[in-house]
């Protein structure tokens, strides 16, 4: 299962802090993919946070905004109030 497939099929969606989240349609395979990718994203965000001397939370917030903006139509995302939406 690739990330693109998981997003196109709506198994995984993006959340407001720049990480993947499982949608109600998600399965075990999607879950392992999500955990693996989120871990890698977190280390990348942390290195930016350290370099810019800013809180990790701020990097995640800006990343979330940018990722959600770039989503293709039909893909899912969760807003900061925890509501799922379809692009």
């Amino acid at each position: 299962l690739t990330l693109d497939e998981a997003q196109n099929k709506g198994l995984l969606g993006e959340n407001a802090s720049g990480y993947l989240e499982m949608t109600p349609r998600g399965n075990a395979e999607a879950k392992t993919l999500m955990t693996d990718i989120n871990a890698q994203r977190k280390t990348k965000y942390q290195s930016i946070a350290d370099k810019q001397k800013t809180e990790l939370k701020s990097i995640e917030k800006i990343a979330g905004e940018k990722i959600i903006n770039k989503l293709n139509t039909g893909e899912f995302f969760k807003d900061s109030n925890g509501q799922w939406h379809k692009k």
Binding site: L3, I37, Q40, R41, K44, I48, K51, Q52, T54, S58, I59, I62, A63, K66, I67, K70
Partner: peptide, 21 residues
């Protein structure tokens, strides 16, 4: 320009690690 630098770094990250995004 913290925000501007952060945004630039994130854009680079999205393109360099496209399999993660």
């Amino acid at each position: 320009e913290v925000r501007i630098k952060v945004e630039k770094e994130l854009e680079d990250l999205f393109s360099e690690e496209s399999d993660l995004f």
